[in-house]
Amino acid sequence: MIVEVNNLKKRYKKQMVLKGIDIQVEEPQIIALVGPNGSGKTTLLNCMTNLLSFQEGEVKLLGKKQTDASIFRDVSYLQDNRILYGNLTGYDHLKFICSVQKIDISKIKEVAERVGMEKYLKKRVRNYSLGMKQHLLLAMVIINEPKLLLMDEPLNGLDPTSAINMRKILLELYEEGTTIIVSSHNLDEIDRLTNTIYFMKDGALLKESLQDISSKKYLITVNDIEKAKRVLHEKVIPFTVTDQYQLGFEETDVDLQSFINSLNDNAITIKDIEVQKVGAEKRYRELFEEELSS
């Protein structure tokens, strides 16, 4: 068993933050952990990695209790950048990890190239941007080639290119046999990373398979957006305007061919059709409707 969390309960004074959390992971996969700020995601990850104590329950990672320090040979936890030291370089951080983990120092160059930080590896962290700090944090948690990787908001501060590279690395790690549990607010990236998601609400976890709840969203670029809008309104076909020349709709609202036919029959030229998967955000809106409207 890779992860065993049984009836985990955590409270701060009288406030119960985690209300009997259960997680079982038997084989490598990528799992997303989603919920509003304050829902307990970071608390859960901190309890799993022994950074926080808890009142009830049990946690085992790779068959060992979370209190067994030896698990961190094969388990890594990406936290926020407050753990970094501004006066040290990125190289200094990675060199320290190599020393503790007994990793050959030549691994630093390899991992720096993999995450794309070789150009600023020897600069002091106090001069890093937010995105550069995220690159360093990623390098720090993958340099030991972990079997289990826990990540708290790894996409924070990343530009689109860096986010795409991050996703590529995580998928590569998964293909290499690493199990990844990632907490993130970036629902579009979650749709691209995994079909398994745990929504955290009121201190409890709700497990979902995005294969069961996801649908497709189509983005249609046309030559005459105003005429297209008039035609679709007349035919009572639901749509959104996503760009100056782009319409959007979900497959659950209207059939793609019917949408295309409505435009073609009225001499509206379709220039491009883009398909996106919609799952995490759709379910999030259903679960957290009150939070979104407040």
Rank of each mutant, 00 (worst) to 15 (best):
I143D: 08
L148R: 11
Q244W: 07
E251K: 15
D104F: 01
M200Q: 06
K122M: 14
I197D: 02
I2H: 13
L62K: 04
N81D: 12
F199P: 10
Y85N: 04
V254A: 08
I30N: 01
N186S: 03
I83M: 13
I270R: 05
D212W: 00
T221P: 02
S162K: 13
Y218E: 01
F96T: 04
R126D: 11
L61T: 08
I225E: 14
P160M: 11
L171P: 01
R285C: 12
L61M: 06
I260A: 03
M117T: 05
A204E: 15
L130I: 14
E281M: 11
A112I: 01
I142M: 10
K10W: 05
V254R: 12
G279Q: 10
H233E: 11
E189D: 15
S262E: 14
K227W: 01
E208L: 09
E251A: 15
E153I: 12
L88R: 00
Q24I: 13
S162M: 14
E290K: 04
D272T: 05
I21V: 15
I180L: 02
T179P: 10
Y218L: 03
F96S: 07
N266D: 11
Y245H: 11
N87V: 07
K107M: 04
L52R: 08
E289H: 11
N7Y: 07
K109I: 08
I273K: 03
L193K: 03
K123H: 11
L88N: 04
Q134N: 10
E290D: 07
Y128V: 05
V141Y: 06
R11T: 12
L138I: 14
P28T: 14
D74T: 07
S209C: 06
I103S: 03
K229Y: 02
I23N: 09
R167A: 07
S262I: 07
L287Q: 02
M140L: 09
L193C: 02
E145L: 04
S162I: 03
E189Q: 15
D224Y: 00
E208K: 10
V34D: 01
L130N: 12
E234Y: 06
P36T: 12
A204K: 14
K123I: 09
T179F: 07
E274N: 12
K107R: 08
I268V: 13
T89D: 10
T178A: 01
L62N: 05
G177Y: 06
